[in-house]
Design a binder for these strands. Structure first.
Length: 918
RNA sequence: GCGGACAUGGUGUAAUGGUAGCCACGUCAGAUUUAGGAUCUGAUGCCGAAAGGCGUGGGGGUUCGAGUCCCUUUGUCCGCACCA
């Protein structure tokens, strides 16, 4: 009987369900292991073969860990709030809850076919009120907290209020939007509204009037990680900067901890580097420059205080507060014209015209505190309002942007670091000897910087300062399909809903359309207010809200009193292995770490970092096929002959192409346009061209996992996805190679059964060679799984089978079945049962290898002469290198290759090689 | 511009500094079969009839020995980007 995967897979998926094989409980008697996949957003398109790649890898690892004695938590759920469902609702009028439910059902069906060991009893959905209750709850806790830099943790806002009452802002060292200065008496005199506005300056979740990324196309604001090149990541609509009142999370308070925490994580260096860049820490100096004829001082931030003697002008951002009063009356009209012009330019234009130099002179001068020289102050949009103080000291000799500006406006350029030629371009060096720099002349840049830090502080010009590129996360979206804020307003003061009122459920609406003005759908809901009639916040939370702490909820998903119980949290602690795409590097993976650190500060969770080890699976790309139509005809010419004609390249569905050979009849059926297509063949075949592209419907290169499961089985799909290449690497899907792993599984099956389906496993004793093959494979496969090198593990199985021939001995096949179980669980279960076992294969243990079986007695030394391999010499292992040398030189092959000369040198690497130099 | 990763047959890839190309796909040949998108066997980096030579993007270095380490250069991909 042939391997009937359909029947076997159905049977075992059914049994696993009935027996609750994958149900996990807290079990202090066993070590735990938590394997997590980034949960999917259930889109309407369903899964393609790329989506399960990471799930398969984590499933193999989970099963492996279970087989080595761990109590493995491996849950799955859905990130179900979000824009696509809402966009779909706008187009079709179907409620997002309905389409989401339908998409989830489809996802589940597809996932189930692949045979994952998820504990579905722990499923979470971010759009479920029982789930988002805890998202809202965490938000309330952030609203009720501030960040104390001295204690390096979040604290209840009540402590801050008590402090204000006692001593105002004296000696305050806390995270805030803008530094404030008031006394206890002043605090007490404030109205309730003023007090609340003041507190918003400190809360970890706060409302502020800030510049935000406004996307009119989506009718909502977006976080920085949701915008790329001035366009929304979703949909690609233009994004502009707009001042709006928004909710934000004070992620910046945790910048230093988010940065330092990376050091102890087992994440790829590249991912850590992305996060480090995103946080963007830079150490520099804050400095105050006097302004000629004014008591005001201009505050700037610089990382290069050593170049102070090269400062020849100052630049402030167009949004800088000084633009209101600084310009002289003569310059006022020019300044106003410039400010109006920059305001008109969209963010996209600014990005596109990065190197266009523009600016205007204010007519005023600052004083270089070290030289006493007066230097002009300019306004230019190359200085960003949002970074540092929105003002810079310009050193044209050593900064390319300052250089371009100086050249454009004919400003002085003074070199202060030796080595560059500043006649054509700036010399942006971070090393070299200082020149033209008074008391630091002659020092190296690296020595000069700390000297200047000290000097700046000594002279009272400013102090050392650390800046981050990271911004607070904009937390409101003017959309419907998200978590409502548990906030209501009274006299425009925001009040938190009491925790016992949670969840605040999303009300039904009929019209999902956003408005260009930014009026959210909830604003049109009658009665969207507390029972007393106070209106609720009408925006909703962004996509990352629900995904920020979902890994905690899996630990204790049915608990309606706590986010996670202490018992569950202390047992499962944090995610040991997290598998997912790198695209979340600056979004979810930052927010989650922030969220978790906040909960850690509050004592809700016991681990500060949520994801100990993280593996980024690569993207599966599509492999597109092309046909070549002769222009203005319905004749298609084969790939090799297309050069002879004027052709047009057309994507063709990869599912009607095999090994790049087109199925002509299927092609004629594919589209009515091609029903009468004619072909010019080569060697009787139509060969298609191909290219690697993104897997997408429009390229006709989407391969559905259902199709693979139906035709080859889930076990083949699982093994083939792993066999494609290293997990972390992006690679194209090519169904052509799948026969290799399918053949392997069928051959393995035939070791257990004859043609008639009769079991043929014997109790005959295994030979030494068979045992050696078995143990070599066990060693290799186990090491490969530990190293996430699943592709080479699959190869190891194939090599094993090639070496075993047709060995049907229980002594060999029984451990091999267990070893194979993580990869091909359905087949392994069936064969395990065939071997007479009554329990599931996953209740047994991974076989250990016997190192004594792998010891070699002899070694075939490769012998090279002058670095070139010439012959081999078999010698006993472990003999003295001198003996090896003697034996090799005595060999007649050595005589031949050395032509009888006495070697200058003989290098013997025991167990490796012998090299003779003549 | 800054930062990171990568470069090996027709294809996917494999190689603790030690016989480059394991394992597969594809291709070719053979066996078996009414038939094959089945099964089995063999060949398959390039040049060469062979002996042999040449081969891991290019150039250089360290080493008895380099795909692997170092320098340099080219190309591809990714991240950030007027961040002072």
């Amino acid at each position: 009987m042939e391997y009937n995967f359909k029947e076997i897979e159905r049977k075992w998926q059914q049994r696993w369900k009935e027996r609750e094989t994958y149900k996990v409980k807290v079990d202090p008697s066993r070590p735990k292991y938590y394997v997590l996949d980034m949960f999917p957003y259930p889109s309407g398109a369903g899964l393609h073969v790329g989506h399960p790649l990471g799930y398969i890898a984590s499933d193999i690892y989970s099963r492996y860990k279970r087989l080595t004695g761990f109590n493995v938590l491996h849950p799955m759920g859905y990130d179900a709030f979000g824009l696509p469902a809402e966009q779909y609702a706008i187009q079709t009028g179907q409620h997002p809850a309905v389409t989401t439910e339908r998409n989830i059902a489809r996802y589940r069906e597809q996932l189930d076919k692949i045979g994952f060991c998820f504990d579905w009893d722990r499923e979470v959905r971010t759009c479920d009120p029982g789930y988002y209750k805890w998202t809202q709850w965490a938000f309330l806790r952030m609203f009720g907290s501030y960040y104390d830099y001295d204690r390096q943790q979040a604290r209840p806002i009540e402590e801050l209020i008590a402090k204000f009452e006692k001593s105002g802002t004296e000696h305050l060292n806390v995270a805030c939007t803008t530094p404030l200065d008031f006394s206890a008496a002043q605090w007490k005199e404030m109205s309730e509204k003023q007090k609340e506005e003041t507190l918003q300056n400190y809360r970890l979740a706060y409302r502020a009037d800030t510049m935000v990324n406004w996307c009119a196309g989506l009718g909502t604001v977006l976080a920085n990680d949701e915008v790329k090149d001035g366009l929304s990541v979703r949909g690609g609509y233009p994004v502009e900067q707009k001042r709006m009142k928004q909710w934000l999370l004070r992620v910046t308070a945790y910048a230093e901890r988010l940065l330092n925490g990376l050091d102890n994580l087992e994440w790829s260096e590249s991912l850590k580097e992305i996060q480090r860049n995103w946080i963007g820490k830079s150490t520099g100096a804050q400095m105050f420059f006097d302004i000629a004829g004014s008591p005001e001082k201009l505050e700037i931030f610089t990382t290069r205080p050593d170049t102070i003697f090269g400062v020849t002008f100052m630049v402030i951002a167009p949004e800088h507060a000084f633009t209101e009063w600084l310009p002289t009356p003569e310059q006022r009209p020019a300044v106003d014209a410039y400010l109006a012009e920059t305001k008109k330019r969209s963010e996209r234009e600014r990005i596109a015209e990065t190197h266009r130099v523009s600016g205007v002179f204010t007519g005023r001068y600052a004083v270089n505190p070290f030289t006493g020289k007066e230097i002009p102050i300019y306004i230019s949009d190359y200085v960003l309002a949002g970074y540092g103080t929105g003002a810079i000291m310009a050193v044209p000799a050593h900064d390319s942007r300052d250089y371009a500006f100086a050249r454009h406006f004919g400003l002085e350029i003074i070199p202060v670091v030796e080595g560059g030629d500043i006649s054509k371009e700036s010399y942006d060096a971070k090393a070299g000897k200082m020149i033209n720099s008074d008391f630091i002349t002659g020092l190296d840049v690296k020595e000069a910087i700390p000297v200047m830090f000290e000097e700046v502080e000594k002279r009272g010009l400013g102090k050392k300062q650390i800046n981050y590129r990271l911004r607070d996360a904009i937390f409101s979206r003017q959309r419907y399909w998200g978590e409502p804020f548990p906030i209501y307003y009274k006299d425009d003061i925001a009040y938190p809903l009491p925790e016992e009122k949670l969840p605040l459920e999303l009300p039904p609406v009929a019209d999902f359309n956003p408005t260009e003005a930014g009026e959210p759908p909830l604003a049109r809901v009658k009665g969207w207010a507390t029972p007393e009639g106070y209106p609720y916040e009408t925006s909703t939370m962004p996509g990352f809200a629900g995904s920020s702490a979902y890994y905690l909820r899996y630990m204790d998903p049915h608990n309606d009193r706590e986010l996670v119980s202490r018992e569950a949290d202390e047992y499962w602690r944090s995610v040991d292995l997290y598998v997912g795409g790198i695209e979340h590097a600056t979004g979810h993976l930052i927010y989650s770490r922030f969220w978790n650190k906040f909960l850690y500060d509050l004592g809700i969770v016991c681990e500060e970092e949520p994801f100990r080890k993280l593996v980024n699976q690569g993207m599966i790309q599509g492999r597109s096929n092309f046909v070549y139509r002769i222009k203005n005809s319905n004749t298609f010419v084969s790939y090799g002959l297309k050069g002879n004609y004027d052709t047009q390249e057309i994507h063709v569905d990869v599912n009607i192409v095999r090994n790049d050979i087109l199925d002509l009849d299927a092609f004629r059926r594919w589209s009515p346009d091609y029903a009468n297509a004619e072909f010019i063949l080569e060697e009787g075949k139509y060969i298609c061209g191909w290219a690697i592209e993104k897997m997408s419907k429009s390229m006709y290169n989407v391969v559905n996992p259902d199709y693979i499961v139906d035709n080859y089985g889930a076990d083949t799909l699982r093994m083939y996805e792993m066999f494609l290449g290293p997990l972390e690497q992006s690679k194209p899907w090519d169904t052509n190679g799948i026969d290799g792993v399918n053949k392997f599984l069928r051959r393995f099956w035939r070791l257990f059964f004859d043609r008639d389906g009769k079991p043929i496993v014997t109790d005959e004793k295994a030979t030494a060679a068979e045992l050696k093959t078995l143990h070599k494979t066990i060693k290799k496969v186990r090491e490969d799984i530990e190293n996430f090198s699943f592709n080479t593990a699959v190869s190891a199985f194939m090599i094993c089978l090639n070496e075993l021939g047709n060995c049907s001995k229980r002594e060999i096949l029984s451990p091999l079945t267990v070893l194979l179980a993580p990869f091909a669980p359905h087949m392994a279960e069936e064969l395990w049962e065939t071997l007479g076992n009554t329990t599931t294969v996953f209740d047994s243990r991974m076989p250990d290898f016997d190192p004594t079986l792998l010891v070699e007695n002899t070694f075939e030394y490769p012998v090279s002469v002058n670095g070139r391999l010439r012959f081999k010499k078999v010698l006993p292992l472990g003999i003295d290198p001198k003996e090896v040398e003697k034996a090799v030189l005595a060999d007649e092959s050595a005589q031949k290759w050395t032509e009888g000369k006495t070697p200058k040198k003989v290098v013997v690497v025991p167990g490796k090689i012998v090299n003779i130099v003549i």
